[in-house]
Write a protein that binds this DNA or RNA. Structure first.
Lengths: 226, 226
DNA sequence: ATGAATGTTACGATTAATTGAAATACAAAA
DNA sequence: TTTTGTATTTCAATTAATCGTAACATTCAT
């Protein structure tokens, strides 16, 4: 559980980091907006805690930049300001929760936990097979956070196979599902797209994940659990 | 695909039922714990969606009663409560997944589908004979989690014999089932493939599982129950 | 011991899968 | 609209795996 505190008051960072470490978090920190953005983009945090008043780049701008970078990590804003406008401004910018200074440490902890929980709970269904990850909603195929660009047909076939891991699919069934038409029994389109898929997975040593069942069809065979 | 929603908020039930019907489910409902238990026991649902806060019998108790009644239907719990204790309590009682209100309908749908899939996958028909296991959907033959690669003909013959364990099959019947043609009365193909099968099973001391019935045909004879 | 039934083996035939390249379809940009 | 680039499909050639046959060996029952 890695989190980051972006706050220019070093004493406060020190105190929070100690408390949160004791609660089992690995705590990173940044003392201005630019440093914060840099770390957030380059790392995977479970939660971001940030102050609105920051040197170099203020909190609102920072939140916007984080979201623009495609990060949906939950953000908890700490601030001395306690006006409704500030709250709204922060939440509109893309923050997930708000805490006004001075605050109770236990409350901070509770909110961080709630944010993290909500975030992981609301994560969309992801198909996974060893290091191969498929997000059907974002239509993204990843290996170790590296995106493998797939074309429509390739993606649809892989999704079908991964959705029913280890089940054998005949060419007929694949054609029926992906093309939504009947198989005339002659074309080898499926085979060709399977080849394209394997070509794209080969650089990651995942060629064998798409297995041929001779005389029957194809299936996904996950190496790390069978 | 019949599912049931057990929830006392009738408006919510109405909304969910509409959405799920559109997604192809047949939706039943109950407005309190007792009614829910009654319907669950008397019907066959693919999935149960229930609220923790219910009149007459709370969700935890209901889950326990459902499991006591021998139903292993997947249960998805809906709740406004968002504390770790509640999650743990629900999951310990025998729920399969959890969703905190307010939730996104698409996520509910995705989770229901995931649950049903996991459940039906789990209930995949598996043929077993002592240590020999055959999964016709994955087309896998295993002994103690070790896969024995079989070719099409070998697999098809073994599947036929294992499906009707201990029943003798003549060459005619085997040819008819596996080759889907008539037996001309001269070929020894079946014998040859039976040999191949035995060769592959021999390293696991399972050669004798494929037994010859002289003058009649072949059968599977399970060593540990005859 | 003998013949019928079954088991074994090797090899050519056959079928299935993979690949590369070219043709076609499709969609975005000019 | 035409152009242009990309995606998809088809076709043919190659490679690989499986299958079936037939000849021969072995076993079993009498």
């Amino acid at each position: 559980m890695k989190i980051i505190i972006i706050e220019d008051n070093r004493d406060l960072v020190q105190v929070l980091a100690e408390g949160l470490s004791e609660s089992g978090f690995i705590v990173d920190s940044a003392y201005d907006g630019e440093e914060g953005l840099d770390k957030v983009v380059k790392n995977e945090y479970e939660c971001i805690i940030l102050d609105i008043m920051l040197p170099k780049m203020d909190g609102y701008e920072l939140i916007e930049k984080i979201r623009e970078a495609g990060k949906d990590t939950p953000i908890l804003v700490l601030t001395a300001k306690d006006s409704i406008e500030d709250r709204v401004k922060g939440l509109e910018a893309g923050a997930d929760d708000y805490l006004v200074k001075p605050f109770d440490f236990r409350e901070l902890l509770a909110r961080i936990n709630a944010l993290i929980r909500r975030h992981t709970e609301h994560k969309r269904p992801i198909l996974q097979c060893g290091p191969l990850v498929l997000d059907p909603i974002a239509r993204e195929c990843k290996v170790d956070d590296e995106i493998i660009p797939l074309r429509k047909r390739e993606f649809d076939i892989l999704e079908l196979l991964m959705r029913y891991e280890n089940q054998v699919f005949s060419r007929e069934r694949i054609i029926a599902h992906v093309w939504k038409k009947e198989y005339d029994g002659t074309s080898n389109v499926v085979d060709v797209h399977i080849k394209y898929l394997r070509d794209k997975l080969r650089p990651y040593n995942l060629e064998g994940i798409v297995a041929t069942v001779r005389g029957v069809g194809y299936k996904i065979s996950c190496p790390y659990r069978q």
